[in-house]
Design a protein around this nucleic acid. Structure first.
Lengths: 182, 182
DNA sequence: CATTTTATCGACAGCATGTTGATATTACAA
DNA sequence: TTGTAATATCAACATGCTGTCGATAAAATG
């Protein structure tokens, strides 16, 4: 009775995850009701409450999984690779899971997943940041670089990958570098 | 009968605006109900539906007003001022209306007001952007600079204005400039 | 097979929603 | 000032989603 709590339960959660992702491609997250989510997942509404409190909890769960899987993917890349190569690997991973990332990143669901994910990834990659002596200035520069990079990636997804991943990775790298040597 | 549709109506809308801003300082926008909003504004719920369809419409109205007023303020600054001075004027305006901007900018209400406002303002100010020949690259650089600047400003508000407005303006300007000469 | 977990079902009260019709109040204009 | 149109109020109603309950059925484990 250690793991069999997770035989059917995992399947149920998976059904809810898939149903939510489907619905999020059809309408804004705020408009999705629990009732509707259960109908799509073909589950009784009572069952929902055995696993989640509300829609946001389901989304949180999905986002947590995606973060973990993405980081795992990046870490499997040759760890001696340069920063720009790691960014490129990240972008390739996004391309391979286009619908997933488009759904999660390319609209404002009211949470901070956009920044959280990419910050999570980019901070693992983090190249040396500029050192201005003043920690306040450094904090602002860091904010600037992070959010700038985040939105390049989001725009890239929204534009249907109109540049090769390598070009985007190089551009991000150059932009951050130009600030470092400012 | 041309403008008297707006004598009491304007007041009603103003009450709703104020009530919403109050509530948004107390809880996330998503949790605010129409019923609650009307109670706070001391208005009958039926009256609400004479003016707005839902909470988001009220917020849209507020955001539109703030955009207009902010732009008007910026445009009253000496138009021969340098870009960095216009940015500084913008930041001073934010400081003078701290609660307002903190409420509207410093949480994810699920709309795109953050970017819209600041992009709206900064594009009026727009200093020459780098010219790379390639319009796609230019678009990405523009995205990078805009969102980077937006979030410096948001962080600055959240940090309780821990730098003088002039310093933040200069920092934004320098960061954008370092990219232009990249 | 027996036990525990998980899923289903029907039902329920609670609450916010959006609308309606009747009525009162307000603002403006003649 | 008074009449008229616009607004605001009020009570009421049907509707839909919510969260919870108890009882039951199905499924997984050992």
């Amino acid at each position: 009775m250690e793991k069999h709590e997770s035989r059917r339960a995992k399947m149920t959660k998976r059904l809810l995850h898939e149903a939510l992702m489907e619905l999020m491609q059809e309408k804004p997250f705020k408009q999705i009701t629990i009732k509707e989510l259960c109908e799509r997942a073909d589950l009784n509404r009572t069952t929902f409450y055995l696993h989640y409190a509300d829609q946001q909890s389901v989304l949180d769960d999905i986002e947590r999984e995606v973060k973990e899987q993405t980081l795992a993917y990046i870490q499997n890349v040759n760890p001696s690779a340069k920063a720009v190569d790691l960014i490129e690997a990240f972008l390739h991973y996004i391309q391979k899971n286009e619908v997933l990332f488009r759904t999660l990143l390319c609209n404002n669901n009211g949470d901070d997943f956009q920044v959280e994910l990419i910050q999570y990834i980019l901070e693992g990659i983090r190249t040396n940041l500029p050192n201005y002596g003043d920690p306040t200035t450094e904090r602002y520069v860091h904010t600037f670089l992070m959010h700038g990079s985040v939105h390049i990636i989001i725009d890239w997804i929204e534009a249907g990958f109109d540049l090769p991943a390598r070009e985007v990775a190089k551009l991000c790298f150059r932009l951050c570098d130009s600030v470092r040597t400012m």
